[in-house]
Computed example of a mutant assay.
Amino acid sequence: MESETQPFSPAPARVRIPVWCLLWCLLALVASACPVRAQERVVVVSDSWMPYNGTPGSKREGYAVEILRAVFERRGFSVEYREVPLKRAVQDVRSGRADILIGVTPDELPDFIFPKTSLGRSDLCFFTMDAKWRFIGPESLQSVVTGFVHGHNYPQWFLEDVRRHPGRFHALHGEDAFARMLAMLAEGRIQAIPGSRAVVEYYVQRADLAGKVFLAGCSGEDARELFFGLSPANMPRSRRLAGILDQGMYTLRNTGQLNHLLIKYGLKDWIEVPQGTAGPGRN
């Protein structure tokens, strides 16, 4: 009886997978199992107060906003800037819903955290359409109707004068209050407006009123340094952010980047940098 012969079947060939391919697959599996860490966000709020801060997302957000972006974005943070009324901005930062408020002083908000480095200097000056009128002290306001923005920080003597003689003052409210106040000055409805020289001169240029609105004088006693105010709701984080701001401002100033940024707004550095200045320590 003939034996049955089985057909010959060759053994399957081994597929050799390159080592680099195995490593790539392993890394892909690990990456998919470990989510990427979200970028830390810094929320900045203020009412519009150019040239410090203006319309979010515009080509001219304000030099204070541009400072924040330059400092924090190079450290890996994302900066979200929101324009909100001043009262709400203070509440949002105080409660921790936002991190940074632009253009305040430790005297105004003593519970806030502040960096050591200022963001500018604000002097109280008065402007008018009358080239002959001069501000030489509080008594100068007796002969004019003066506009002011409700909620903005004015010296105590000015607020007391408003309280005692409300008929000589006109309060404006809202996000565009300063621009409307300048328009009232141009229309002759008020005769004087107070404000930081940098702020008023910026709005005068934008309103095409240069040569028509005059600087009538400044109150030297009321000049003050302005700062970024950080939230007291999370002090360790705010102190860390304040340290980053100090270090970042030092770098911007001493590399010339700050002056380059300020030129865009027709400004120059408010602090003269001495030669050989040491930088602030890291927090």
Results as ranks from 00 to 15, higher is better:
Lys87Ala: 14
Pro85Tyr: 00
Phe77Thr: 08
Ala89Met: 04
Gly103Gln: 05
Ala64Glu: 02
Val79Cys: 06
Gly57His: 12
Thr55Ala: 13
Val44Met: 01
Gly54Glu: 09
Arg94Gly: 09
Asp47Pro: 00
Arg88Gln: 06
Asp92Thr: 04
Asn53Ile: 02
Ala64Ser: 14
Arg94Pro: 03
Glu66Phe: 03
Ile67Cys: 10
Leu68Met: 13
Pro85Trp: 00
Arg88Asn: 04
Gly62Glu: 03
Thr55Lys: 12
Val84Cys: 01
Gln91Tyr: 11
Tyr81Met: 13
Glu80Ala: 15
Ser48Pro: 11
Phe72Val: 04
Gly96Leu: 12
Asp99Met: 07
Val90Met: 01
Glu66Tyr: 04
Tyr52Ile: 06
Pro56Arg: 03
Asn53Asp: 15
Arg75Asn: 15
Thr55Asp: 08
Ala70Gly: 07
Gly76Lys: 12
Val71Pro: 04
Glu66Lys: 11
Ala98Pro: 02
Arg94His: 14
Asp47Thr: 00
Val44Arg: 02
Arg74Tyr: 10
Arg94Val: 12
Asp99Ile: 07
Ile100Asp: 01
Val79Trp: 09
Val45Leu: 12
Ile67Glu: 11
Arg75Glu: 15
Ser58Asn: 13
Val71Met: 10
Gly76Leu: 08
Pro56Thr: 09
Gly96Thr: 11
Leu86Ser: 07
Val45Lys: 04
Val93Ser: 08
Pro51Met: 09
Arg97Val: 15
Val104Phe: 03
Val43Trp: 10
Tyr52Glu: 04
Gly103Pro: 02
Val43Phe: 12
Tyr52Ser: 12
Arg94Phe: 09
Arg74Trp: 09
Ser78Ile: 15
Ala70Met: 13
Met50Asp: 09
Glu80Met: 14
Glu61Ser: 13
Asp99Trp: 04
Phe72Tyr: 15
Arg74Ala: 10
Gly57Asn: 11
Tyr52Cys: 03
Pro56Lys: 03
Pro51Ser: 09
Gly76Asn: 11
Glu73Tyr: 08
Val90Ile: 13
Phe77Trp: 14
Met50Gln: 09
Arg74Ser: 15
Ala98Met: 05
Val90Cys: 03
Ile102Gln: 01
Ser46Arg: 06
Ser48Phe: 03
Thr105Tyr: 08
Val84Pro: 01
Met50Cys: 05
Trp49Thr: 00
Ile67Tyr: 02
Ile100Ser: 02
Ser46Trp: 02
Phe72Leu: 08
Tyr52Phe: 13
Pro56Ile: 14
Gly62Gln: 05
Arg69Ala: 07
Ser78Lys: 15
Arg94Asp: 13
Phe72Ile: 02
Ser95Asp: 11
Trp49Leu: 02
Glu73Asn: 07
Ser78Tyr: 10
Ser58Phe: 09
Arg88Ile: 06
Phe77Leu: 11
Arg69Cys: 07
Gln91Pro: 07
Met50Gly: 04
Arg82Trp: 11
Phe72Met: 08
Val84Gly: 01
Val44Phe: 03
Gly54Pro: 00
Ala89Trp: 01
Asp99Ala: 13
Tyr81Ser: 10
Arg82Tyr: 13
Ala64Cys: 12
Gly76Met: 08
Tyr63Glu: 07
Leu68Cys: 09
Trp49Cys: 00
Ser46Met: 05
Ile67Ser: 05
Trp49Phe: 07
Glu80Cys: 06
Ser58Ala: 15
Val45Thr: 13
Glu83Ser: 06
Ile67Gln: 08
Gly57Ile: 14
Pro56Ser: 10
Arg94Ile: 07
Tyr81Lys: 07
Lys87Asp: 11
Leu68Gln: 08
Phe72Ala: 04
Arg60Tyr: 14
Gly76His: 11
Met50Tyr: 03
Val90Arg: 01
Asp92Val: 06
Tyr52Asn: 11
